Computed example of a mutant assay.
Amino acid sequence: MGGVITQLWDAYCRARSRPEQPTQPAHIAARVISAARIQMRRDWLLVGSDIRLRAGVLSHWLRGRQPTMTAEAFQSRWCHEEVLCSRPAEVTEPPHMHWTAAHPVPLPR
């Protein structure tokens, strides 16, 4: 949800500061989708590994963030009826992302 609000606020601020360059709704939608896909990838990195060991920063800097995620938790968050993405068979593979800004929008399987 934060990605949607961030992108809407960014579009609003741009429109106020540069009214001669309007932001198209398709651009906002593409940014929302991109932000969600980035978050999906970040969450997938937590599956099968501990971010505290891979981050290269002090672990107390990561307070408030879960250091790991189960594949089931990832599936519960992102893979409902495989509309946004689907979980791969192996943790070493990236998730299969279905949500896209491509036109026409592909139907879920």
Rank of each mutant, 00 (worst) to 15 (best):
Y12R: 02
C79M: 01
L62Y: 09
V32R: 03
A101S: 15
P19S: 01
Q7R: 06
V32W: 03
W78V: 01
A15N: 11
D50M: 07
W99C: 07
R87N: 06
T23S: 00
C13F: 09
S17H: 11
S86G: 09
V83A: 08
R18P: 01
L45N: 14
A35G: 08
M40H: 01
C85H: 01
M40P: 02
S86N: 05
T68Q: 14
M97V: 15
V4N: 06
Q66F: 10
R65I: 14
F74C: 11
Q75N: 13
P106S: 11
M1T: 07
P94T: 12
M69T: 04
G48P: 02
W44I: 01
L107V: 10
L84K: 04
H96F: 12
L62Q: 09
L8T: 03
R54F: 03
H80N: 10
T6V: 09
T68N: 07
A55V: 08
P104F: 03
R16K: 13
A26R: 00
L84P: 02
R63H: 14
A73S: 08
T6H: 13
P108L: 06
S17G: 09
V83I: 15
A35D: 13
D10R: 02
A73F: 02
P106L: 10
V32A: 08
G48L: 06
R37V: 08
A101C: 12
H103M: 11
R65K: 10
T68F: 05
L62V: 08
R42N: 08
V83G: 05
T23W: 00
G64P: 03
S59D: 08
G3M: 04
W99A: 07
S59R: 12
